[in-house]
Amino acid sequence: MRSSLLSLVILFQFCFVQTLPAQEKQIAPENDQCIKCHTHQTITFENTLTKREDKRLMNPLYILDKNHFAQGVHGRFKCTDCHPAEYSHYPHKAELKLEPLSTCLDCHGGDARYASFQFEKIDEEFQKSVHFQKSGESFTCSKCHDQHYYQAKSRNSTEVGDIVLFSNQMCMSCHSNNNKFQLISDSLKPALAQIHEWLPNQELHFKNIRCIECHTQVVDSLSVSHNIMPKEKALKNCVECHSKNSMLEASLYKYKNLQGRSQKGKLHTIIANKAYVIGAYQNNLLNSVSIILFLVVLTGILIHLIARIVKK
């Protein structure tokens, strides 16, 4: 009796501990009606004509990643918050395809709760970008920001590598995938590795800097600049990053550094930085030590030389 009570307690604790982290990031239970099909390779549904259970293949492009969804900014949403409720029936009605979905601005525009993200200003900047200039309305925010999965990485993550990966995947989803690229354009995507051949250590760079670092104009009031400029205006000048007053401080490392500095002091942010950018991390202490050493050596030599000439 005693031991079974104990095991019950342990079992309870086990369940509790096990489910706690998962509970934080769980999707709405109502979504089961959709994800029972939209997270699987196959679907089963009641064929109303034959009155039989049918098992078919799922369209692989419509399969969502449940965990990924749960981690996104809209992870607590019901599918039907955005999609028409009639989707709960299958086969989906053909007209449902035609219904326009809300855009970011429809929900976030003018909402004071999201003022710090400056949605309106982002929209303004985005409309100046080559993407919008060349392709107009068909290039929506959602083409980069998947509404299912988007996370506000650049302000919530403390790992530069993590931020860079997430951000660059947005661009790569088209620029290294012809199918999606051709949603917008009739031409083939240019090969990124070839275009950027002039950049040494290309892979290292793409892991440590975001595409937008070189392809947008930094707007000081925005944490993420959205004005992607024509390729002629892209940053090619190495010294913009590889120098003491690096532009990276103003863009990529801005949030991280601001957070880090206030929490742990400047030295720590510099030392613990995951990236070392030649030229940008000049250590003042090492600089002074080397200048002093250099001067000492030169003075020594000079004195010796003078003595040699005098005593000749």
Binding site: V239, H242, K244, I278, G279
Partner: peptide
């Protein structure tokens, strides 16, 4: 490289 500076090249 170490002391790269846009103003003084």
């Amino acid at each position: 490289m170490q002391y790269s500076n846009p103003a003084f090249k």
